[in-house]
Amino acid sequence: MKEISSAIQIIPLDSYIMLSVALFSIGLMGVLFRRNIIAVLMCLELMFNSANLLLTAFSSYHSDPAGQVFVFFIMIVAAAEVAVGLSIVVMMKRNVESVDINLLNRLKW
């Protein structure tokens, strides 16, 4: 644990923040603009993982384990969420034979 923590601290904190923000933005753009549902799900995961990376970096810089424990919770919840998401995609695929997000337009005002 000590070695990992010091290994993380070789890179300055600013770089971690930059990387996480970049990952988060890539994920955000992907969710907004990709048309394939599977790609959208992957981008959502990317957004979760950017938060994980940030938490881990902060946690070792503060030498406070709570942040890394939280990362485990996030990973478990993200896994559960993606399981549900993929099953919803399967359910949709059975009905319309496609995973294009543009098909989701039956409900509108």
Partner: peptide
């Protein structure tokens, strides 16, 4: 319609969670 509701809720819900 139910599938669509479910997927929209899932996607925007996860988006908000992120």
């Amino acid at each position: 319609r139910s599938n669509e509701a479910s997927f929209k809720y899932f996607m925007l819900g996860s988006f908000a969670t992120a």
